[in-house]
Design a protein around this nucleic acid. Sequence first.
DNA 1: CGTTTGTTTGAATAGAATCAATGCTGGTGG
DNA 2: CCACCAGCATTGATTCTATTCAAACAAACG
Lengths: 236, 236
Amino acid sequence: MKGGRIQAAWAGAAGCRTCGIRQMALFADLQEADFALIHVPIDEIVLPAGSNLYHLGDQGASLFTLRSGLIKLVQSLPDGAQRIVRLRRPGDTLGLEVLLAAPYEHDAVVLQDAVLCRLPLEVVTRLQRETPRLHTQLMRRWHQSVREADEWLTGLSTGHARGRVARLLLHLADIGGSNEIPDLFSREDLGAILGMTTETASRTIAEFRRSDLLHSLGRNHFRCNLDGLRQLADQA
Amino acid sequence: MKGGRIQAAWAGAAGCRTCGIRQMALFADLQEADFALIHVPIDEIVLPAGSNLYHLGDQGASLFTLRSGLIKLVQSLPDGAQRIVRLRRPGDTLGLEVLLAAPYEHDAVVLQDAVLCRLPLEVVTRLQRETPRLHTQLMRRWHQSVREADEWLTGLSTGHARGRVARLLLHLADIGGSNEIPDLFSREDLGAILGMTTETASRTIAEFRRSDLLHSLGRNHFRCNLDGLRQLADQA
DNA sequence: CGTTTGTTTGAATAGAATCAATGCTGGTGG
DNA sequence: CCACCAGCATTGATTCTATTCAAACAAACG
């Protein structure tokens, strides 16, 4: 968890035109002619869970589109504690800050085996210069980051532990589109998302299980009582 | 503080070309020719402290540049509590979300008498379409919002009350460029920024005063011991 | 001058952090 | 195949912190 450099396995140049997730990615609105502007191959990167895509402070020259898997963006506090600031899911873009010549602002750590496309800065800036069709998508991505950040602040960092955990679970269920939450996070990660200790996260989950708000389906895999959680989320 | 509709006093069309704060605002990079693209007058709006620039959920048709004053962006929680999510200072842009046809995502409440320029959506979208010189500034603004949001999450919503208050005070001093903090916030606002009760905010400030970390210069106007605060901020 | 609004302070309670120990699980190597 | 080990997760006991409810105070305002 500490060491972590990029353990990338190059998996060939991606075919953006025929990309299966393009409609949900940064290049969604590009048209046939626009692809001619891409003069550099778009690499595909495969990273195992636990590895790092980039580090806070690195001066990067690439953005990334996450094709599959799950990545956490982490910032460290002065006292050494860590806080997970956002999650990136398939279709999301990582490293937008390099468009402003800024270094990466987080540690990007893989939670579930990830496949990404590496978009060289020059490709994106060129497209940005030549075609207006990238602008909207770029703004959409920025906007989504801001929205998610605000939501984490108000929903996941405010109020009592029970309410925060409940809201996170609902959020995850909502994303997954069912009332099941797959084995994504360690208790430590839960704590780092919610700004509480591992122990409190564990205790709260245990309490939810006893109150039949959660039902274990395996290691950290749950089915949840959405209505019950919603009630907690809205009050506490 | 509750009522609040826009109590705008129209103060004439602003002359963007000769604007005193343009170099720090959204239109910083525009050139002479670009201004010809602005076919609608840019109104100037004056709002007194306590009034509302816009409300969460309003379907807006304008962005705003804050020329002077201070504005808080507030989101309400399901249980009725409020959380201040960001502050906007002179030079900042408000309402970027309307570029994506989204309704305003916060209540924008004036903390210090404010003067703003109202930028009609059509003006900004036209400039965006016709000149590349707006793109960088737009991205800079989005980027700054994300950065600020992340900073609030890690710095102001994590750890003990003392550390959070200390970090906020340092942040304010840093912005002001001195070790003095003017009378900006009520205790209630401090609580809403830091995610704690008014009482805890009050107690913490009182404690800082007793420990000579703060020295009262008036109502809520302080001189602060930066080194002492830094020590608290880094550990707690 | 009384009234309102915001601040401070107090006492009691509830909540979360901390410190420490135990349990569980999956992986490794004998 | 089994025994052991390492890494999480859980649980308990205690301490510390923040919230809550309530009251006193101060300043600002009509």
